[in-house]
Design a protein around this nucleic acid. Structure first.
Lengths: 246, 246
DNA sequence: GTTATTTTACTAACTGGTTAGTTAATAATG
DNA sequence: CATTATTAACTAACCAGTTAGTAAAATAAC
């Protein structure tokens, strides 16, 4: 951990340090929120002195914003590569929903930061979060909306408010992970094991297929096809949220 | 505000003070989270000295738990009165979903506390939250699951994983309010105005009707009937989340 | 029914630990 | 040697929780 000190040029190592700080910040902020996170802890995770945080970032809040942008960027890259323009609108929507599901659990930190940011926004906190919305969410959402409009026009998808379809499709995924701790307590079966998630992922896509297509049989086929083409990614690609050995 | 001091017995006034503290705590914790909330601020909102918090509650965290239980209790009462056993399972489900929608926006503080509690649970925080889950969520959720099973057996509802139907129905509602700040930035149309919510409420129920019933026409009728019977409650019944005049 | 004693409800002012942020000095690098 | 990266040590503010006290209500004593 204290190695790799003699490699490369100074500025390259500086970049590396900076991004280590950012990673540590993402982790600490996502686990504890802006108020709960401790700068000392971020420094320790990153393996640097606390003062270095202030060398690279103006303040705790600036670091928070930078951390938010980091994860947003990752999500943008991940979601852009998901759509497959040569398939039917309906199939692309299903594909997108499946990708969204996988994204949530591999990017737990993003989800967590988002949730907390929502609460902050509710309070009317001044943001600079707007730019993330513009860069990440707007293009994604409007792209999906256009696909839905097209699918409905073609008669592949049921007539409905486009945004409602999004709320239903993405909301089900978000709610699954959001409620996981409660469900865990409620049914003493942990919803975050690989088996549980694999099941939910399948069922979630199948239900979407049954919900939004005019021809439910066609919907079921699309769902099956998409599921077959997209295996669930290995878990633990990012090992955020591992329990710390105190 | 400084009146009503000469009324009633001492212990009655004490009860009143205690509940004023709890209300203040609900508000402060829901806006700022456990770590972000300030005891001094809670005291100020309640109009008492900070030390009084420690007279009534052991610690900040004990107060937090008490606040959580307060709102959970309210929600339980609200949701129990929603089901109408003389209707068909499908109609009861739709009724429940509509009630859930209305509950979210009239009990914003609960939603907010829940979200934050989810994050805390994710981290494996020790809870005593379990009792709330047992008392509020488990009875509610299992009741709904049984209704779904019945509806599917009768052929009224489409065959699907019961929990998935819940994730879809409730997730869409939750996600609407969860994403409201982002959508607000994205489309500069505030989703939390009365008109926007009235529209979403209607569309959300209609979409549910189109999704879970074997006979989509019957589903549409049920949705229309439920909507007709249940006008949207006046907003601002609880004025949590009003902006504070600093 | 008045007086003395205890209990309850509440506050002003303090304390000590914590934590965001600074400074000044020191390595490393080019 | 001048610039850049990094740290140890410090400070000022903040904030959860305490203490020591008071006024009034409830209760007991006479």
């Amino acid at each position: 951990m204290a190695l790799s000190t003699q490699t490369r040029t100074q500025s390259e190592r500086a970049d590396h340090t900076r991004s280590r700080i950012l990673d540590a910040a993402v982790r600490e902020f996502s686990e504890n929120g802006l108020a709960g996170a401790r700068t000392e802890q971020i420094a320790e995770i990153a393996g640097v002195n606390k003062a270095l945080l202030y060398y690279y970032f103006k303040s705790k809040e600036a670091l928070y914003r930078a951390a938010l942008e980091t994860v947003a960027q990752r999500v943008l890259e991940m979601s852009l590569s998901a759509l497959t323009p040569d398939h039917s609108p309906g199939e692309q929507i299903v594909q997108f929903a499946l990708n969204h599901f996988d994204r949530i659990h591999s990017q737990r930190a993003f989800q967590s930061l988002m949730q907390q940011e929502m609460v902050r926004l509710h309070r009317g906190e001044e943001n600079s979060f707007s730019s993330i919305v513009e860069k990440v969410f707007r293009p994604m959402m409007f792209r999906i909306r256009d696909l839905l409009t097209e699918g409905m026009r073609d008669g592949e998808l049921v007539q409905a408010d486009e945004w409602q379809v999004m709320y239903a499709a993405l909301g089900a995924n978000v709610f699954y992970f959001l409620s996981a701790p409660v469900v865990g307590i409620m049914s003493d079966a942990n919803p975050l094991t690989r088996e549980a998630m694999e099941f939910r992922r399948k069922v979630s896509i199948e239900f979407l297929g049954a919900s939004i297509f005019v021809d439910r049989k066609h919907g079921a086929e699309v769902a099956a096809r998409v599921l077959a083409c997209t295996p669930m990614p290995e878990s633990g690609e990012f090992k955020m949220f591992e329990r710390k050995a105190k």
